[in-house]
Simulated assay, not measured.
Amino acid sequence: MKRDKKLKVFVDCHVFDEGFQGTRTYIEGVYKELIKDTTRQFYLAAGNIDNLASIFGQHSNVVYIKYRIHNKIFRLLGYLPWLIVKHGIDVAHFQYRVPPLKFCKYMVTTHDVLFEDFPEYFPKIGRKVSYYTYKISAKLADVVFTVSPYSRKAIVQHLGIKEARVTPNGIDTIFFEKYDKVVMVQLAAEKFKINNYLLYISRWEPRKNQHMILKAFNELKLYESYNLVFAGETTFKNPEYDAYYAALPHTVKQKVVRLGRINFADMLMVLRGARLFVYPSIAEGFGIPPLEALAAGVPTISSNATAMEDYIHFMGQWQFDPQNYTEFKDVLLKALNNPEQMDISGIKNEIKTRYSWNIAARVISGYLNTV
């Protein structure tokens, strides 16, 4: 469609005011590609626009809008529609929820609806709120995007829409960069007092299955040779993990390290220094950490459930059913004892081909071309 002025695209970036999460990675990856198109004008909005500018840079076709209202409800109900009208926006892109007042075209990315397929892992009130707000937003949106074939099928089924377009997550090029393994191991030992460690990077909640790793770590007596390291902020408590950990002897506990929320530089260093990356999550809308680990050349084993079933094309025998403890232990021991059998170089090439932000950006750009 020919236009006599630049298409104005608004992007809600409030997640950049919070901690690292999948939606932030998604927006950053996609829009670093999209803003290369100078025939469109982009308006990126958040509370901390200096932070946004440090991430996306200064460009003639990018305007940073500072949020003056930080309450999420007030912002969604009235402030965002006002900003859209004020700046003459043509298309606005939101994650999960869109404003109920509509003065332009809406794009929404619904990353997953796991609370519908796995309600036991989510608080009841939160499930209800998410279901109705996601459903209303999907109905209001002119186009719905998601990040995996698994999520697309679930969204169409549960939210009652006709179509969701897949914009797969990409792996940042920094994970593919070369580094000195010995140096990374030394840095991790110096800063966090960890060495020869198994690593799991993910939010802390029951569906992430941290308790299964801990159980195997203890029963297989891996603590005699390794540390077990967890990194990631807590979303929900995991009573099963807490109970099992509390009953462990001190000799095992001292080999288990919870780093909690760490910055990106430390996360990358800890990842690169790992002996093995383990990802036993029960349910994911995409599941990007094992791909990042493999891109960084770290031996990795992963769940094969939900969206991660797509990884079978290149991970094969290094995947397992996250609810089959025996299978998990078998794959874990095979990876620790025979890491040379893992074709990490070949897997890295597959990941680089399949998971590029350019692919997701082309899907969104294709829609923008129709506006």
Results as ranks from 00 to 15, higher is better:
Arg165Asp: 15
Arg165Leu: 15
Arg165Gly: 03
Val166Glu: 04
Val166Lys: 05
Val166Arg: 02
Pro168Ser: 02
Asn169Arg: 12
Asn169Tyr: 10
Asn169Trp: 15
Gly170Val: 00
Ile171Leu: 11
Thr173Ser: 09
Ile174Phe: 03
Ile174Asp: 10
Phe175Ala: 01
Glu177Arg: 13
Glu177Pro: 04
Lys178Ser: 10
Asp180Thr: 08
Lys181Val: 01
Val182Gln: 15
Val182Ala: 12
Val182Lys: 15
Val185Gln: 14
Gln186Asn: 13
Gln186Phe: 15
Ala188Gly: 06
Ala188Arg: 10
Glu190Met: 10
Lys191Thr: 03
Lys191Leu: 13
Phe192Lys: 12
Lys193Val: 08
Ile194Lys: 04
Asn195Gln: 14
Asn195Lys: 14
Tyr197Gly: 00
Tyr197Phe: 05
Leu199Ser: 02
Tyr200Phe: 04
Tyr200Ile: 06
Tyr200Trp: 02
Ile201Leu: 05
Ser202Gln: 03
Arg203Glu: 06
Arg203Val: 15
Trp204Leu: 11
Trp204Gly: 01
Trp204Ser: 04
Glu205Cys: 02
Pro206Arg: 11
Pro206Asp: 06
Pro206Ser: 09
Pro206Cys: 03
Lys208Ile: 01
Lys208Leu: 06
Gln210Ser: 07
His211Tyr: 15
Met212Glu: 12
Met212Val: 11
Met212Phe: 14
Met212Tyr: 10
Ile213Ser: 08
Ile213Tyr: 00
Lys215Ala: 05
Lys215Asp: 08
Phe217Gly: 06
Asn218Met: 11
Leu220Thr: 07
Leu222Cys: 04
Tyr223Gln: 08
Tyr223Pro: 06
Glu224Pro: 00
Glu224Arg: 10
Asn227Thr: 07
Asn227Ile: 02
Leu228Trp: 03
Val229Arg: 00
Phe230Lys: 01
Ala231Leu: 09
Gly232Glu: 05
Glu233Phe: 09
Glu233Gly: 15
Thr234Pro: 07
Thr235Pro: 09
Phe236Glu: 11
Phe236Ser: 13
Asn238Ala: 13
Glu240Gln: 12
Glu240Met: 11
Glu240Pro: 01
Tyr241Lys: 00
Tyr241Ser: 01
Asp242Cys: 09
Asp242Lys: 12
Asp242Asn: 13
Asp242Glu: 15
Ala243His: 02
Tyr244Cys: 02
Tyr244Glu: 06
Ala246Asp: 05
Ala247Cys: 10
Pro249Leu: 02
His250Arg: 00
Thr251Met: 06
Thr251Gly: 04
Thr251Trp: 02
Gln254Asp: 07
Val256Ser: 07
Val257Gly: 04
Val257Phe: 10
Leu259Glu: 01
Gly260Trp: 14
Arg261Ile: 03
Asn263Glu: 13
Phe264Trp: 06
Asp266Pro: 03
Asp266Phe: 01
Met267Ala: 03
Met267Asp: 09
Met267Lys: 03
Leu268Thr: 00
Leu268His: 07
Met269Ser: 15
Val270Phe: 09
Arg272Pro: 12
Arg275Thr: 11
Arg275Trp: 02
Phe277Met: 11
Tyr279Gly: 04
Ala283Ile: 00
Ala283Lys: 05
Gly285Leu: 11
Ile288Val: 07
Leu291Thr: 07
Ala293Glu: 01
Ala293Met: 00
Leu294Thr: 09
Ala295Ile: 04
Ala296Gln: 09
Gly297Glu: 04
Val298Tyr: 02
Val298Ser: 13
Pro299Trp: 01
Pro299Asp: 09
